[in-house]
Write a protein that binds this DNA or RNA. Sequence first.
RNA 1: GCCCCCUUAGCUCAGUAGGAUAGAGCACAAGUUUCCUAAACUUGGUGUCGCAGGUUCGAUUCCUGCAGGGGGUACCA
Length: 559
Amino acid sequence: MKHTVENAILGAVETLLKTKWEISELPRFEVEAPKNEAHGDLATNLAMLLARPLKRAPRRIAEEIVEEITGNSSDLFESVQIAGPGFINFRFSNAFWHENLYKILHKDRLYLRRNIGEGRRVQVEFVSANPTGPLHIGHGRGAAVGLALSNLLEAAGYKVEREFYINDAGRQVGLLGLSVYVRYQQVLGSKIELPENAYQGDYIGEAAEALIAEIGKKYLDVPFDKCGEDITDWSYRRMLAEIKTDLENFGIRFDSWKSEKSLYAANEVQNALDALKEKGYLYEHDRALWFKSSSFQDDDKDRVVVKQDGEYTYFASDIAYHKDKLDRGYDYIIDIWGADHHGYIARISAVLQAFGYDKDRFQVILVQIVSLLRKGLPVKMSKRSGEFITLREVVDEVGADITKFIFLTRRSDSHLDFDIETAKQQSSENPVFYVQYAHARINSIFRQAPAKGFSNVDRNNMQDIDVSRLTEPEELGLIRKLCTYPMIFEAAARAYEPHRITFYLQELAGLFHSYYRKHRILVEDDREQALARMTLARAVEIVLHEGLTILGVQAPEKM
RNA sequence: GCCCCCUUAGCUCAGUAGGAUAGAGCACAAGUUUCCUAAACUUGGUGUCGCAGGUUCGAUUCCUGCAGGGGGUACCA
């Protein structure tokens, strides 16, 4: 609908440029929905922007434009008015809205989706939790955002791949192995102390028990350097399997799982460093190897890639990993990180530039910390001490849909207090149910329809139904709202902000609930009106379903 | 010290590529069901948009400074 107004303006201005105006170029003007409904459906600031170059009062200019427009396309608009300092407000005619309603019904959903990706390949990497323990609520937020963003971009015409990066090569994984090893020995009666920095959660004990069940006393009193590798390997695979299960229960499936170890195995880390060295971006200092990060604008200091002791830093494998991603041919790579990693962005960006990649192809979405509360009191979260609530526990207690939806009712970079009790207590008045309920209600209407005398209505084929009877303010309001979805969708996709969809859906559901209470849809004694209203309801259902699906939340037919 | 993010209604938060009278949910109060799902609806009200400057026709939005909150600033992961 934005294009409609833009075209009307451009058409009018074209003749004015030829005849009355003594300028050659048009400034970039806006066409936006005014905050205040009384100001029409869309408004432009063009006349105000032209005031200076044309040296005339903005309202005078607006008058000229309006005169042209109303002469050209009077059937599209109910009114085109000048207001305030020189805004031009457009109000569409009912016929225009009715015409647009059909576009929503169209099977291919192209009207809703806008192809801005044009088939370009995007990789979204998210969660990527260390396989050293269960997922916690913060991972859950990253997971929800990653899922929704992937879906959003996919709907916007990108070819999306979801990846989980497994940190299976570092010291932390070794520490996990050691922790399980020690607990294994302890359970079997060997007197051995758990090192202070080891993991201590219950899940370590559970892993030890499972290990005993699997291999018995095979490694009892065997020194760690003899069996550590086996146990470490076994332990992180077990943790990874748990993580995978948790994510699946949360409704998330990855297209690929990339192992850090595999990068080392293929010698990619060393190869990447060699390549950097060849380009002159590595140097030795204090017997360590450094990357010249500071020669790129974003980073303020150089970074170590190989330590004094000859070990690679975590950064070294990240260099190889991010290089590998772009080498794999993605047009864009998006990383979703906890906000505490934001200092890391600059050096990765520097690395990619060092390899000659455009830095715009790498994007990081920061997800702020989640504070987990119970009845307003903070729940302590420390992986070391093992005192924390896992994502699994939260999902079991609260539900996957509610949890995801709550994460998506905020911008990802703002802090979030997640109160388990509140999420549960409000479950009957929870925003996610509010939206789902609207969807279920519409489905219920269509289930009822045959019994009320509307037996041969095909939900997928309603384009021929006459909707000109939809003239109630609530009906036109709903259509108007439906027609803004493409704009919301496009803005959300361009900004990588799925939460905009969440807010839109709540508003749309609100309008529908209100309409539903006020007007009967299956009007028994007026078939034409009933059919028109069913068509409207169907359009609402389509958009709700579309939006919920993008968020990764169920759109139930019954509740 | 330096860098990044946040500060909007009692609470939790939307909203800014500068625009007209700044929004929602929760909480609180009162009402709505012979009728397609009451997980719903209707009505009721509050703001120094953290503070102070600047830029301009116009600033919650952009710039600078300050304050408060959070995070980062490892040859940790």
